[in-house]
Measured scan of single mutants.
Amino acid sequence: STVKVRLGHLEVTLHNVSEEDVRELRELWKNGADEEDLRRWLEEWKK
């Protein structure tokens, strides 16, 4: 499914993403990950 995730002022649209992935991303964000960390996660996730 396609999910729009809003993290601060960063809005990311993920395609074919699982609930688990979204949860993981939100956890990262809650734990103080900055945009760099999130971008890195997204790069990994896209592979």
Rank of each mutant, 00 (worst) to 15 (best):
E24N: 11
N31D: 08
E19V: 10
E24K: 12
G8P: 05
V17Q: 01
L38R: 01
S1E: 09
E24R: 12
R39L: 12
K4H: 13
L28Q: 03
G32Q: 06
H9K: 15
L14M: 05
L7K: 02
W29S: 08
K46P: 05
E11R: 04
K47M: 12
E27M: 09
R23V: 08
E11G: 02
H15P: 02
D37N: 08
W29I: 15
S1Q: 14
R39Q: 09
T2V: 11
L25S: 00
G32C: 03
V22G: 02
G8Y: 03
V5F: 15
L10N: 06
W41F: 04
R40G: 07
V12Q: 02
S18M: 07
N16W: 05
D34F: 05
V3R: 02
R6I: 15
G8C: 03
E20W: 08
L7I: 15
N16P: 02
K47D: 08
D21S: 13
W45D: 01
A33P: 07
L38F: 09
E43D: 12
R23H: 11
D34Y: 06
K30M: 13
E44V: 07
R6Q: 15
R6E: 09
R6K: 15
L38C: 02
T13R: 02
L38H: 01
A33T: 05
E24F: 09
G8M: 02
W45F: 10
W41S: 01
K46Q: 14
L25C: 01
D37M: 14
R39N: 11
D37F: 07
K46T: 13
A33V: 09
K47S: 13
K4N: 09
V12L: 12
E27L: 09
E27S: 10
K4P: 03
V12W: 10
T2F: 08
V22F: 11
V22N: 02
K30N: 15
G32N: 11
K4E: 06
T13K: 04
E19S: 09
R39A: 10
R40A: 12
V17E: 00
E44K: 13
N31V: 07
E35T: 09
W41K: 02
A33W: 07
L28V: 04
L10I: 14
K4I: 15
R26K: 14
R40S: 10
N31A: 09
V22H: 07
E24G: 09
V12C: 05
E20R: 14
T13P: 01
D37T: 15
N16Q: 04
D34I: 09
W41G: 00
L28E: 01
R40Y: 07
R39K: 12
R39D: 03
S1A: 14
V5S: 00
L28C: 04
G8V: 02
R39C: 05
K47T: 11
H9A: 14
K46I: 15
D21R: 04
S18R: 10
L10S: 06
N31E: 08
G8W: 02
E43K: 07
W45V: 07
L25P: 00
K46H: 15
S18A: 06
N16C: 04
E19Q: 12
T2M: 07
R26W: 13
G8F: 03
E20M: 08
W29M: 15
K46A: 13
S18Q: 07
R23I: 11
E20A: 13
K4W: 03
W41Q: 01
W41P: 00
K30F: 10
T13H: 05
L14T: 00
E36V: 10
L7W: 09
V17S: 03
K30P: 02
A33H: 06
H9C: 12
R23T: 11
E20Y: 09
V3G: 01
D21E: 08
R6F: 14
R23W: 10
L10P: 00
V22P: 00
W29Q: 15
V17A: 12
L42W: 06
D37Y: 08
V17G: 04
V22S: 04
T13M: 06
R39H: 08
W45P: 02
N31I: 05
L25V: 03
S1R: 12
R6S: 14
S1H: 14
V22L: 15
T13G: 01
E24D: 09
A33K: 04
V17T: 02
N16I: 02
V22Y: 13
K47W: 08
H9F: 10
W45G: 02
W45I: 06
V12Y: 14
E36L: 09
L25Q: 00
E44D: 12
R6N: 13
L38G: 00
R39M: 13
G32A: 05
E36P: 06
A33I: 08
L38N: 00
D21M: 10
L7F: 14
L7Q: 02
V22E: 10
L38M: 06
V17D: 00
L14K: 00
R39V: 11
E20I: 07
H9N: 15
D37E: 15
K30G: 07
R40I: 10
A33M: 11
W29E: 14
G8S: 03
S18F: 04
E36T: 11
T2Q: 05
V5E: 01
R23C: 04
G8Q: 03
N31G: 10
K47R: 10
S1C: 13
L10F: 13
L25K: 00
V3F: 04
K30Y: 11
W29N: 05
S18W: 02
E27G: 04
E20K: 15
V3Y: 03
E44Y: 07
E43G: 03
E43Y: 07
D21L: 08
K47G: 12
E19L: 10
K47H: 11
V5K: 00
E35D: 09
E11Q: 09
N16G: 11
V22D: 02
V22A: 09
S1D: 05
L38D: 00
K46F: 15
E35S: 07
G32L: 06
L10G: 04
V17C: 03
L42Y: 14
K46M: 15
K47E: 10
G32P: 02
R23Q: 13
W29D: 04
R39P: 01
E11T: 14
E44W: 06
R23M: 13
L42H: 03
N31F: 05
E35Y: 11
E44F: 06
E19W: 10
E19I: 10
W41A: 02
D21V: 08
A33G: 09
K4R: 11
E27H: 07
L7M: 05
E11P: 01
R40M: 10
E43I: 08
W41E: 00
D21Y: 09
R26Q: 14
R6L: 15
G8R: 02
K46Y: 15
L38A: 02
E35K: 06
W29F: 15
L42E: 01
V3D: 01
E24P: 02
H15Q: 07
R39F: 11
E27W: 08
